[in-house]
């Protein structure tokens, strides 16, 4: 498949947005923003490559490391930053925080803090799409660590027997948190497990956005044809620690040389080099893309900061839909 200039520039721009967003989050976190922040940096090609192959009304399910997935799916910069800052204008109205971004308006059915949870929910969304014959696809992002949970295997089997329109996107960044895949998994190529469930599985260079995109387009087509699930194992790396609570960038359990080698494979660097090499973009345009990203983020930060705080009483809202909620709070 030949990827067009327009698509590659679009994906590069999205990846840069995710990177600049991460940088802003680090800055805000270091100056006191609360919450647990698991950043995307290093994994941009997976988020952007997959989401670029999906339509607006397709679904994604995500992980604790879900901010990039949300933005790649067309999520709202202002709403996510407002969410981080516990504001009424947040995408979850300030009640979910950084690990639980939900925004059905762009098909983001939820980042989930329980490792492995994206798969069963994606299977359910795909089952619904199948029962409704809507032609929609659900993509579940998860890490290498999730592939060892019981629910992962349950869901691979469900998708296999029911031919669900689902894409299982494994972001294998080689560490479940600190334990390397060589010590936490019985095999190193996790996609090989898909064969056991009669699901096609592919190992993809997760640092190459074009490779991810091409594989995802094929998986979407397979799902829409009614031929069921695909597993894409995207080998990638996280440039930060597991979360920003680890300021060492994970160097307690991985080497500086290893990190440096992966930084060389940076997905943004690769995409930019390809654009330049093909003469598809000029320096001025690259600069303009960067400025647009930075400016959009600055505006979103200002929007978030000036938004109204969530009042404490909101803790009592949304446990149930309104009517039931009233009964409950009176009754419990």
């Amino acid at each position: 498949m030949e990827i067009s200039r327009e698509i590659l520039i679009g994906m590069y721009s999205k990846m840069l947005l995710l990177r600049r967003f991460d940088e802003k989050v680090v800055e805000l976190y270091r100056s006191g923003m609360k919450g647990l922040y698991h950043l995307t940096a290093g994994g941009e090609a997976v988020a952007v490559g997959v989401c670029s192959a999906l339509s607006q009304d397709d679904y994604i399910l995500s992980t604790h490391r879900g901010k990039g997935h949300y933005l790649a799916k067309g999520g709202d910069l202002q709403a996510i930053l407002a969410e981080f800052m516990e504001k009424q204008t947040g995408c979850n109205r300030g009640k979910g925080g950084p690990m639980h971004i939900i925004d059905p308006s762009v098909g983001m059915l939820g980042a989930n803090g329980i490792v492995g949870s994206s798969l069963p929910i994606a299977c359910g969304a795909a089952l619904s799409a199948k029962l409704r014959r809507s032609g929609q696809v659900a993509a579940a992002f998860f890490g290498d660590g999730a592939a060892n949970s019981g629910v992962w295997h349950e869901c691979m089997n469900l998708a296999g027997i029911w031919k669900l329109p689902v894409i299982f996107v494994c972001e294998n960044n080689f560490y479940q948190e600190s334990v390397p895949v060589s010590r936490h998994s019985s095999i190193q190529d996790l996609y090989a497990r898909a064969a056991g469930y009669n699901i096609p599985g592919y190992g993809i260079d997760g640092m190459d956005v074009s490779a991810v995109y091409e594989a995802a387009v094929e998986a979407v087509q397979r799902a829409k044809r009614g031929d069921g699930a695909t597993m894409l194992e995207c080998k990638t790396y996280r440039f930060h620690g597991h979360s920003e609570a680890d300021p060492t960038k994970g160097l307690r359990y991985r080497s500086g040389e290893e990190l440096a080698a992966w930084l060389e494979k940076c997905p943004l660097k690769q995409a930019k080099a390809r654009l330049l090499e093909r003469g598809w973009i000029a320096d001025a345009e690259l600069e303009a893309i960067d400025q647009r990203c930075t400016q959009g983020i600055e505006e979103a930060v200002n929007f978030a900061k000036s938004s109204p705080d969530v009042p404490a009483e909101w803790a009592l809202k949304d446990v149930f839909t309104d009517d039931q909620g009233e009964i409950c709070h009176e009754g419990c």
Partner: peptide
């Protein structure tokens, strides 16, 4: 696969 059953219930309920 009880976790799968409950998860499929959640996912399908989310979308219609």
């Amino acid at each position: 696969a009880e976790a799968g059953i409950a998860g499929a219930a959640v996912g399908s309920a989310l979308v219609g």
